[in-house]
């Protein structure tokens, strides 16, 4: 049985903001299925009582003091922007939540 369907891949691509083509969907669905079947092997390990590791360094409480540092200039901040207007990043219209 396939671990992942073409529809699921299409849904995940939408969630990830990837406008994948039909051809890519066909290809990815098969490839991702192989990969997911392989990685699903982690499930074979009995690990109910094992704590998960999210960080490999055993550090805690790393903080900075609340002291201002130099920010970028507005020009530097906008230097890489595909589109900017009057000191702000310009983006196409945002879909209304109510749309």
């Amino acid at each position: 049985m396939a671990a992942i369907s073409r529809e699921e891949v299409a849904h995940l691509a939408r969630l990830s903001r990837l406008a994948v083509t039909e051809e890519e969907l066909d290809r990815f669905a098969g490839q991702l299925d192989v990969i997911l079947q392989s990685v699903a092997r982690v499930g074979e390990v009995a690990a109910e009582d094992i704590p998960p590791t999210s960080h490999s360094v055993p550090l805690t409480n790393v903080y900075r003091e609340d002291v201002p540092t130099t920010s970028l200039t507005q020009d530097a901040a906008l230097s890489g922007a595909p589109d900017a207007y009057e000191g702000r990043f310009r983006v196409p219209r945002i879909l209304d939540e109510e749309d």
Binding site: L18, A19, E24, L32, L36
Partner: peptide
């Protein structure tokens, strides 16, 4: 879609899953 190559897209999709 235009900016990422196929391996990056595959991994993003797997990770999202």
């Amino acid at each position: 879609e235009a900016g990422f190559g196929p391996e990056v897209k595959r991994r993003i999709i797997i990770g999202t899953y």
